[in-house]
Design a protein around this nucleic acid. Structure first.
Length: 452
RNA sequence: GUGGCCAUAGUUCAGUUGGUUAGAAUAUCGGUUUGUGGUACCGAGGGUCGUGGGUUCGAGCCCCAUUGGCCACCCCA
């Protein structure tokens, strides 16, 4: 019996009309990256398991797709080990979980060939063993741009401008949220719960979803003292403009050096951006923005689309001061952003934000009535192609005209050339504009001039 | 990893308290129209009802398990 074909859970196929839309997104992002001086690299789909483990927190480790060792993977393995130990025995490779950690590995491995600061971009799929749902896939493309080997905040400014430029071009209204891990550290310091920083940030991050009572409850459950929770209240509740937020924080964190340095960084980024002006994106300081990935140490970014039903982020990033030290390279601060191409694709599909031209690939189709006409058209087809026009001829000589026209219509080909005995005699071809239905007799040279 | 809803043609869905041969729309192919597409009309092909088991004289419908999908939590792009 034939088995019912399907793709694995959380993965999908992309047909031609979907791929042209996706490529439009990829091309837009790529162009912006290159305009800001970033160059492409590529890393393997799989990494050594040891490269990835421990970089994304305990939850992240569980979500890494592990690859079973080839050969008899259970030979010589003590099967009574617990699953975590067993995993390390039977799997030594894994599919990459993001592009940032493999990039850190790349930088350390190639440090002697690289001129710093090093600006690279990378557009590749990553895999997560998450349970799929709206906007969440097990295979999805990330589009990363990172600078490594520079602590200048100008890099952060650059990245914000790039985000604005991408979403302006794609016509996706976007809100860029910015915060700084140092501010969060400062807050943890002030309320006397320095070591609970992760708990605090994760809880605060949920403010939008569960409200202030929910956040307090979660903090309490995670062992934060009532005193600390009380001290946290004015901060969580604070509303105001970015300037007001900054002034408020300056007072609150006056005794925390790390907190003040975070404020200073944010202030610089906002001032500079305000002077330069963004094209369309909105930007705000969100002191409840935390982000889960453990490696961030400075600025953190998150971008959401302000239209459509997708509420999760479509772009995220931040500064990491210490990521390469795990692989033995110290003092190499980096900052980067990652566009979630699949989520951007979903938002754009929902609202149909694509320009008309993206679906158009072939410009001109030769419609013929038989072999003689086909042979007559072949040299013409070459001429048209050499002139740089995407064009094709219907391959089956005996196909009815209706079929050939339907083909053109279905493929959204804007022009067809119809060639029969009249045309072959006169050398003037019938050119039909599929949108208007107009038709004229015209030479091949004029066709090229007209369409190009 | 936890919870909720769902699963019938390629796709979107009907299918009565369990009852004979499982329907529609759309898509595909063909025809009306062998030099004119997107409209219209006619016709054809396409389903062991996700899979496995159970209850029953009888299951698309009821029960159990399993797999997959959607959604929420967790986490994240």
């Amino acid at each position: 019996m034939a088995q019912k074909p399907s793709t694995p859970k959380g993965t999908r196929d992309f047909s031609p009309n979907e791929m042209v839309r996706r490529n439009y997104i990829f091309d837009t992002i790529k162009q912006v990256f290159q305009r800001y001086g970033y160059l492409p690299i590529e890393t393997p789909a799989m990494e050594n398991l040891s490269t990835l483990m421990g970089k994304y927190g305990e939850e992240g480790d569980k979500l890494i797709f592990k690859i079973l060792n080839s050969g008899d993977f259970k030979e010589g393995v003590d099967l009574s080990l617990n699953s975590k130990q067993l995993t390390n025995k039977i799997s030594e490779k894994a599919l990459k979980y993001d592009l940032t950690v493999p990039f850190a590995r790349y930088v350390v491995q190639h440090q002697h060939e690289i001129t710093f600061p090093f600006k690279r971009y990378q557009i590749q799929p990553v895999w997560r063993a998450d349970r799929p749902q709206k906007g969440r896939y097990r295979e999805f493309y990330q589009c990363d741009a990172d600078v490594i080997g520079s602590t200048s905040l100008l890099n952060e400014v650059d990245l914000v401008q790039m985000i604005d430029e991408v979403f302006t071009t794609l016509k996706v209204p976007a809100l860029i949220k910015i915060n700084n891990r140092k501010i969060l550290n400062g807050i943890a310091e002030i309320i006397g719960e320095k070591e609970k920083i992760v708990t605090i940030t994760v809880a605060i991050d949920k403010l939008d979803k569960i409200g202030i009572d929910g956040v307090n409850k979660e903090l309490q459950e995670n062992g934060l003292s009532n005193e600390a929770i009380q001290k946290l209240q004015p901060l969580i509740e604070f509303q105001g403009t970015t300037l007001e937020k900054l002034n408020f924080l300056k007072k609150l964190l006056a005794s925390s050096n790390i907190g003040l340095s975070g404020i200073e960084e944010v202030e610089y980024i906002f001032k500079t951006i305000n002077n330069l002006k963004l094209n369309s994106a909105d930007i705000e300081l969100d002191i409840t923005l935390a982000r889960g990935l453990n490696y961030y140490t400075g600025a953190i970014f998150e971008v959401k689309a302000t239209i459509g039903t997708l509420t999760s982020s479509i772009c995220g990033g931040g500064r990491y001061d210490d990521l390469t030290s795990i692989f033995g390279l110290l003092n190499m601060s980096g900052v980067g952003i990652s566009f979630g191409a699949d989520r951007i694709y979903d938002v754009m599909n929902e609202l149909n934000l694509y320009p008309e031209s993206v679906t158009e690939s072939t410009k001109l189709l030769f419609v013929t009535f038989g072999e003689a006409e086909q042979n007559y058209c072949l040299p013409l087809l070459s001429i048209v192609r050499k002139a740089g026009l995407n064009s094709e001829i219907y391959p089956d000589a005996n196909a009815k005209m209706k079929k050939q026209m339907s083909y053109a219509d279905d493929k959204k080909i804007p022009f067809v050339v119809i060639v029969g005995s009249d045309e072959m005699e006169s050398g003037l071809l019938s050119l039909k504009n599929m949108a208007t239905g107009e038709q004229e007799k015209i030479s091949i040279d004029n066709i090229i001039k007209k369409i190009k």
